[in-house]
Amino acid sequence: MAIIRPEKKAEYEAIYAVHQSAFKRDIEAQLVDRLRTTSYYHPELSLVIEENDEIIGHLLFTRVVIKDGNKTFPALALAPVGIKADHQRKKLGTELIEAGLKKAKYLGHKLIIVLGDPKFYTRFGFERAADFEITPPMGFPEEAFLVAKLSPEETDIKGQVLYPVQFNMTLEK
């Protein structure tokens, strides 16, 4: 049986390996490492999924801001989500995302944004961000920029999403 819980410092290497396995590169794993050193990092929302004492998946929600003129609104960005290659296609990513959204809502967060496959993320309640006048940073494909409102009464949130600079850093091999 899979257990979903917040990550522990001693598991950073195992989490790095999860993202390397899931994405076949280091970019996502390095992003997680960089974000952990910032005030945007939310330790309660850096979740792992484990089976038989092995970390097999990880997701991270990071604090972001949506800016509309002089107004700003807090939100969370879901990125990355990774499941080890040999554990994919077993609905573990689905379990992890559902648990993460539930925890984010429990902690009082109102809005989650994600850049991802609409066919995958719409099953979790994500919708086109453009339909809510929420725009991505330049260079993001609008059709893959999605939002989940965890609090339906939040109707006045609109503007451009501002990610932490750690998302923009180019990585050297």
Rank of each mutant, 00 (worst) to 15 (best):
residue 93 G to D: 09
residue 67 K to N: 05
residue 150 L to I: 06
residue 135 T to G: 12
residue 68 D to W: 02
residue 114 V to H: 07
residue 68 D to R: 09
residue 104 A to K: 01
residue 151 S to N: 14
residue 91 K to N: 13
residue 72 T to R: 08
residue 104 A to C: 02
residue 93 G to P: 13
residue 129 A to P: 11
residue 136 P to Q: 12
residue 71 K to C: 12
residue 126 F to H: 03
residue 73 F to A: 09
residue 113 I to E: 03
residue 116 G to V: 03
residue 152 P to N: 13
residue 68 D to E: 14
residue 104 A to S: 08
residue 63 R to D: 07
residue 144 A to Y: 15
residue 155 T to G: 06
residue 83 I to H: 00
residue 82 G to I: 00
residue 137 P to R: 14
residue 155 T to K: 10
residue 65 V to Y: 04
residue 109 H to N: 05
residue 130 A to T: 10
residue 117 D to W: 04
residue 135 T to M: 13
residue 80 P to V: 06
residue 152 P to T: 03
residue 84 K to R: 14
residue 131 D to A: 13
residue 80 P to H: 04
residue 113 I to C: 02
residue 102 K to H: 08
residue 100 G to S: 03
residue 147 V to D: 02
residue 132 F to N: 14
residue 136 P to C: 10
residue 147 V to Q: 01
residue 144 A to C: 07
residue 120 F to R: 11
residue 77 A to E: 09
residue 114 V to K: 06
residue 85 A to Y: 09
residue 127 E to W: 08
residue 96 L to Q: 00
residue 146 L to K: 02
residue 141 P to Y: 12
residue 72 T to P: 03
residue 85 A to K: 12
residue 84 K to C: 07
residue 66 I to T: 02
residue 143 E to L: 11
residue 128 R to D: 15
residue 74 P to F: 00
residue 93 G to V: 07
residue 120 F to Y: 14
residue 112 I to G: 11
residue 144 A to L: 14
residue 106 Y to N: 13
residue 137 P to F: 11
residue 68 D to K: 04
residue 94 T to D: 15
residue 109 H to T: 05
residue 94 T to H: 14
residue 94 T to W: 09
residue 132 F to I: 01
residue 119 K to V: 08
residue 115 L to D: 02
residue 71 K to N: 15
residue 126 F to D: 06
residue 126 F to E: 05
residue 81 V to I: 10
residue 99 A to Y: 12
residue 121 Y to C: 03
residue 152 P to E: 06
residue 134 I to K: 00
residue 70 N to S: 11
residue 147 V to I: 08
residue 72 T to G: 01
residue 143 E to A: 12
residue 74 P to N: 03
residue 77 A to C: 14
residue 149 K to I: 00
residue 155 T to S: 03
residue 130 A to H: 11
